[in-house]
Amino acid sequence: MQQIFNFLIRNKNTIIFLLLLVFSIFLTIQSHSYQKSKFISSANFLTGGIYSWTSDINSYFHLEEYNQRLLEENKQLRAKMANLDDTLNTMDILKISDSLYNETYTYRTAAVINNNYARIDNYLTLDKGRKAGISKDMGVVTSQGIVGIVENVSRNYATVISILNSNSRINAQLKKSNHFGSLVWNGEDPNIAQLTDVPSQARVAEGDTIMTGGRSLIFPKGIPIGTIEEFSLNPNQSYYNINVRLFNDMTNIGYVYVINHNKKEEIRELENTTNDE
């Protein structure tokens, strides 16, 4: 017994070192596994508070740019609305159901208070959390394109797994045909993401637009992602590997929309009961 104690005391530094090392490796492995709640994340009172404080100061320097973006978005929305009014007027026989009580997607606004893009696994932090109705697995977009998916939520803050994250996989499709693929990132250029698994039957050309596919319950169909920069067939000629230049400048994101699919639970439930049978 005495010897065991002596051994422990003599090697206490090594033992403490090993214990703490195992703990930090555990945290690291946990951070590399996708879609798992972590207990070390920047969505907490302390780090969230400090980040929102600094981003308050920082956002003043970008006000003009944000205004520009809002003007641009307003212009697009107005153009869309004008077209829509025209079509609605010409088909006045058609009854429009009241979409307010039955809307599929809810949009919420939030500000980005921290944004990473230089690592392999990047995250963003938002200044709104559970209190503002944000929950896990909601989609995050800007007026220009998609940003990521909500991962951890605290009372006042949320972390978002960026599309610039090696664990991120987002369903995407070509705009001109219905061929689907997965949007991933290889960790190199923050302006270029990769679209994989597009079947070789699809007609692909440089400059084509890529948008979200609407197969997942996270993003609505048709949110722009980027344009095709270059493409090649994979070695066994069955799928394309496509480099996509993102519309969004991921290094400069100020305000975002958080999208909730209101019928997510209903669809999941239905799919689960179908699978069980």
């Binding site: 945290l27 994340s41 972390t159």
Partner: peptide, 22 residues
């Protein structure tokens, strides 16, 4: 760990600092 908390990076800074300190 303090740096990791801000960076959302799990425990990578903690592990690296620990080894260096050891």
């Amino acid at each position: 760990l303090g740096v990791d908390l801000f960076e959302d990076s799990g425990g990578i800074n903690a592990a690296a600092c620990l080894v260096v300190a050891y």
